[in-house]
């Protein structure tokens, strides 16, 4: 009897020790990446070379801000700015400070946007790249401030401003302060625009809510990546309001293009060429093919 009990006990112990910890699971994930759309498996290193686009079905994976820098800007040309800004907890939301800290460690960013100057095929530009891995790319005080300062830098240096949006909208934990960042970035954009400078907005998956309803939609040129989700209100909210089934492609980049809301949908492989050509066409005395 005791022996039998011993067997069970041992099994129990064994079972517990073989439950994979989260850490253990993360290792193979780093080597191979499975496409969430077609389930095709690609070597992660290979995928990075392909600008994180699935070789089989063209699915555009989410990019981190630094991956975007690497796939877009001339090597070694990027200098980040305002990495020292720190998020506060103005409404005293429980757990907010901790969440910011852990996302910051996870992404290596101080907030959900990376800003700085760099070169696009030799042409100087100021960029802001939102990262949806950081609090869903939501916009609070620091995101608004970083984007505003980047626009101000572009205005001061008379450079084009290019933003890559990826955001669920305004950040709730900072309440109305987040909402006001929409106005703050807008006043800065107006000043940049009045100087006759170029602003290109590249909408990537997902761009919704307050970010969609501010800087993302008012580029001199609005470009989106294929299949990106772009919209003001969430799909579920709309379905509940209008009580009808929405079309499959509702709020995709292609849907917006069809409804006249975008200038173009551009494949990631062509993004660098498209953007650098646009910048060149807006630069005086640089109309020759560089």
């Amino acid at each position: 009897m005791a022996m039998i009990r011993e067997i069970f006990k041992r099994n129990k112990d064994k079972k517990e020790t073989t439950i994979p910890t989260k850490k253990a699971k993360d290792v193979p994930e780093g080597l191979m990446t499975k496409c969430p759309s077609c389930k095709h498996i690609t070597l992660t290193k290979e995928l990075a070379k392909l600008h994180k686009v699935c070789p089989k079905c063209d699915h555009h994976f989410k990019m981190t801000a630094y991956e975007r820098v690497e796939s877009l800007l001339d090597e070694g040309s990027f200098t980040s700015m305002d990495d020292h800004l720190k998020t506060e907890n103005p409404l005293g939301f429980p757990g907010y400070t901790e969440k910011i800290k852990s996302d910051s460690e996870k992404t290596g960013l101080n907030e959900a946007v990376l800003t700085g100057g760099g070169k696009l095929k030799g042409q100087e530009v100021i960029v802001a790249i939102m990262d949806s891995h950081f609090r869903m790319g939501s916009m609070g005080s620091v995101v608004g401030e970083k984007i505003t300062r980047a626009i101000e830098a572009a205005t001061e240096q008379r450079l084009p401003f290019i933003i890559f949006t990826a955001s669920g909208g305004a950040r709730m934990q900072e309440g109305v302060l987040s909402l006001m960042q929409m106005a703050k970035t807008s006043v800065a954009l107006k000043r940049h625009s009045n100087e006759g400078l170029l602003f290109i907005s590249v909408l990537t998956h997902p761009t919704t809510g307050g970010v969609s309803a501010s800087f993302a939609s008012v580029g001199d040129i609005n470009i989106a990546e294929p299949k990106a989700l772009i919209g003001f209100a969430g799909r579920r909210v709309i379905e509940q309001t209008v009580r009808e089934k929405l079309p499959e492609d509702f709020q995709t980049a292609e849907f917006l293009l069809e409804h006249g809301q975008l200038d173009a949908v551009v494949h990631r492989n062509d993004m660098q060429t498209t953007l650098s050509t646009l910048v060149r066409l807006h630069t005086k005395g640089a109309n020759q093919n560089a």
Partner: peptide, 25 residues
């Protein structure tokens, strides 16, 4: 702003965003 299908099709985001920028000036 109204969260509806037609509003999205006609550019609810752009309409709001445009007002923010234009009011600034």
């Amino acid at each position: 702003a109204y969260p509806g299908k037609a509003a999205e099709e006609r550019g609810q985001s752009e309409a709001i965003a445009r007002n923010l920028v234009e009011m600034a000036g």
